[in-house]
Nucleic acid binder design. Structure first.
Lengths: 218, 218
DNA sequence: AGAGTATTTATACGCTTGCATAATTAGAGC
DNA sequence: GCTCTAATTATGCAAGCGTATAAATACTCT
């Protein structure tokens, strides 16, 4: 059987979508374990149980794969946050609280996510296409947040004009980002749920309302 | 003159400190221009007008140089923020405001700084030495902030016990970080000084005091 | 001025990287 | 079951990387 030479690797032909997903997943594993520098074409291929050449068949260049992986992560985080909203109560204040809490806990607040995100941000500066991709993501997030804020303010009987909600969205977005960052970088020096609590409290202070539907000031 | 062969590069012997600084500066230029990946030993050496081998004479390994560069950036930003405090008024509330404003304006809030910072953060996950280096920097910043907060609260006649100031420091640190991030990434979509104003307002809300010395509630 | 040394240059090595390309093969369609 | 094609493997290349090391040289000290 093995008389002659090393036998050629057997393989299955997968659907295009499945392969792309697998390759992206493998990329994320590599980045998670050894950082962006550890995500080499060969390492990714091995992780996906595929030979290196195949990567180029689906992604013209390595940067394309990395870019796809970045978008996948950002999208995943967005979806996870939105899921939390689906399961939240009806009251807009509860919904805002749920959104914040979701963003400041597992699995969104995770060192791996930060690694990937930071690696990308570092590239943004050199690559304009990546820059606009990121900006769109940021503005999308902020817009979603602004809607939640407006509805929470209305539910509390507070004025919610655009001029105010914009500023509030900027500030609250900063609070979420900043705490997310702290938690990803050094989650172990905070108690469980401390960052989420801190975030909710800070946001309540900024908006001047309670996010507990029960105790909400009229 | 040039008959025989390429003449050997002439050089000057610089002091150890000067050389280290030059090499770090060259490293930062490289990172700023083409990202961490662009900061190769050869590129750095060329930028410092030195041959590559010399780098190893001062830094045993490239990672050591990168680490030193990271600490230099963080230190530079810290110093710039502290400078703003030197020139601030005596009132603790004014000092806190000056600190925040300094961190949310030029030259600290700069895309280059973000590029550098993000590139290093991406490494933190894989490199434990870098991780502790970063944690120390973060805690140092937060401690400085906590002192400013405590004094501002006292000046406003508010309780300033450790339990509260810790939480406040975490939240306000997040506000500063988050706004700094937004400004670095997309400074052009904000008006001049908008982020600093937003930050100060949010912090006032969180602390429940005014940072304007004049209008401060007793 | 001459000797000694720390600093700097120069060169090369081994490795890894991304990318290209030719050879193979699994699976769909007739 | 045969054929045809698209998916996959295998192999190789040129470039760039960090690092090691030996030779050269600028400066210090006497």
């Amino acid at each position: 059987m093995n008389a002659q030479s090393a036998t050629r690797k057997t393989f299955r032909r997968e659907g295009e979508d499945k392969r792309r997903e697998d390759l992206i997943a493998a990329t994320l594993e590599c980045v998670a374990e050894r950082g962006l520098a550890g995500a080499t074409v060969r390492e990714i291929a091995q992780r996906a149980d595929v030979t290196a050449g195949l990567i180029r068949y689906y992604f013209p260049t390595k940067d394309d794969l990395i870019g796809a992986a970045y978008r996948a992560v950002m999208n995943r985080m967005t979806v996870q946050a939105s899921d939390a909203l689906q399961n939240a109560a009806d009251d807009p204040r509860s919904r805002l609280q749920a959104f914040v809490t979701a963003n400041l806990g597992a699995p969104i607040m995770d060192p791996h996510n930060l690694s990937l995100w930071a690696g990308f941000i570092a590239l943004v500066h050199a690559d304009p296409a990546m820059a606009t991709a990121h900006r769109d993501g940021y503005l999308g997030f902020r817009d979603e947040l602004e809607i939640l804020i407006r509805e929470a303010l209305r539910a509390a009987g507070k004025p919610a004009e655009r001029i105010h909600t914009r500023r509030h969205a900027i500030a609250i977005n900063a609070i979420i980002d900043g705490l997310w960052l702290e938690g990803c970088l050094a989650g172990d020096i905070f108690e469980d749920g401390e960052l989420a609590e801190t975030g909710v409290a800070a946001i309540e202070a900024v908006l001047g309302i309670s996010l507990q539907a029960e105790g909400g000031a009229q």
